[in-house]
Nucleic acid binder design. Sequence first.
DNA 1: TTGTAGGCGTTATCAA
DNA 2: TTGATAACGCCTACAA
Lengths: 340, 340
Amino acid sequence: MKSRKSTIHDVAEQLGITASTVSRALSGNDRISQKTKEKVLKVAAELNYQPNRLASNLRTGRGNSIGVVVPRINRNFFSNVISGIESVTNPAGYNIMICQTNEEHENEVRSLQTLINNQVDGIIMSVSANTMNTSHIQKALDESIHIVQFDRVSNELDISKVVNDNLMGGYEVTRHLIEQGYKRIYHFAGPMHLGVYHDRYLGYMKAMNEAGMKVSSDMVFADILTRMQGLETTQTLYKSGMLPDAIFAASDFSALGVLTALKEFGISFPKEIGVAGFANEPFTELTDPGLTTVEQFSERMGQEAAYLLIAEIEGLKEDIEHQTINIKPELIIRQSTYEN
Amino acid sequence: MKSRKSTIHDVAEQLGITASTVSRALSGNDRISQKTKEKVLKVAAELNYQPNRLASNLRTGRGNSIGVVVPRINRNFFSNVISGIESVTNPAGYNIMICQTNEEHENEVRSLQTLINNQVDGIIMSVSANTMNTSHIQKALDESIHIVQFDRVSNELDISKVVNDNLMGGYEVTRHLIEQGYKRIYHFAGPMHLGVYHDRYLGYMKAMNEAGMKVSSDMVFADILTRMQGLETTQTLYKSGMLPDAIFAASDFSALGVLTALKEFGISFPKEIGVAGFANEPFTELTDPGLTTVEQFSERMGQEAAYLLIAEIEGLKEDIEHQTINIKPELIIRQSTYEN
DNA sequence: TTGTAGGCGTTATCAA
DNA sequence: TTGATAACGCCTACAA
């Protein structure tokens, strides 16, 4: 029985009243008598009435939904952020619509447009690696869409952001390596045009400088993000006899590659060499040795971003400046750098 | 400048024609002259016109969106499935709205309702561990909502499903263990009321029976899903001197617990004992020893589910029976069971 | 080929 | 407190 879904008109007819009265009864409007309200609720339940959000949203101009744009859904970091977002938005009555860009600028532009066309109340996003300009985001802002960025943010945009304190993370890892007595410490960095990786690099530089340890350009390798890249770079270093005392990789995946390569060569951790990654991916505690890394509190990032966005949407902070929440990371020390 | 967004009426006014003509020009209707069509498109672009999907959907009764309900977004398996779904639905013009149930029946009921109220065209779902009855799903079906289930499905429902051939997976793992010469093989099962785990158990039984190996009730442990549960159960076995030759765990996480516990006791793999898991979680190739497991092709599951659902939505198979797609898993042999 | 008119289901405004 | 009316933006018979 594919019975047409009942509307407020059906409820109204049943009771011999008008749709507006039913609407008031259902929406918690107080300009209604307790008695009719009860009757309406009763009949609505009987008819299995379910509000049509589309109609409601069209009328009110609000969508009760929030868009999320991420590079990849099935990355541990991003799926945790999404989980965090959802844990805040859902209780607050918002649905989330998710788009993934696969790191493509073009997809990001399209995703944003799609979400806007669907009248989302706001958007939480992390830019893709290939996003070099932000005109599409600016355009959305011009249409007064609320946007909050997290993790990979655009410094030139005046909007709220939630970021990890990557500089601090990079600094703490490097200082830990220095404290462990490693002298010649290399850095396997990510794409430097992304702030998150640039900041980790800056943290590395800061710690090295503070310790009076010189960093020459052959000690920093850019664009080493994947396991394979970490592995190959390490192999090259080994073959040319240029292995350092320690390697701080800006990504757990490249650190894993480093680990794999060094194990092949029979090098022992943390004695002969120290290795640290970044992100505290689940696998880092399972490698042999366990990988020293940095926890980013991804779920909390999502929650904070959601709080910020909802506050903006609901006008709880009309004239307050956009703010940037800086989440402090935490150094996780394991056997790849520390003998216990 | 928070200029009101332009509508087809704005475009129409600009050109001195009516909104319906604009609508036709924009929607690819052929009852329109090439000339006006071009003019409309030009002005639409100038005014930065963007269709309001809400209005369009309300009018047409179709939402161009698909709901996804999963126990947890940030589980590797589910985020991969979602990624697979998204890779099919997005190019086809559907957005996905995601809800997570956190394994709670109550949340599942609410999620379903929310999606329906938002007029999704269909729903792809995997039931939560605590979902014991399916009346909420049946109710949605009665309202002629298209639903496709994946992985954790409800056998009593006559709808399309995408499942992993868990029986085959369990069978192949167990047969592999038998072929490796292990005699006394235990099974750490999941919650038996979930078909996926029950089937893996049946696969285990089938292989054991075929090989003429008796299975007594003290060889099968139910509800061992987490790392901690696997660890503690193994410790208990060890302390009572009851360790088997091999353990087939229905979950990679519990297998990991087994591995951890046995390593503590200094037991060697695969010689003294063999361990196998299920799901090919990313960490399984990183443990020491690498963990033998079963690949489920999660991303493909998502794609297949999306194809099925879209076919139903778009009426491409009006009177065809609901079908169940059985995805063949693949045994991944690693050092926890195999010396190379 | 284009315009007219009405409605999708809801809510907001006004009047009663 | 309730009803009548209109409108959110779009689409689609039907008429012209």
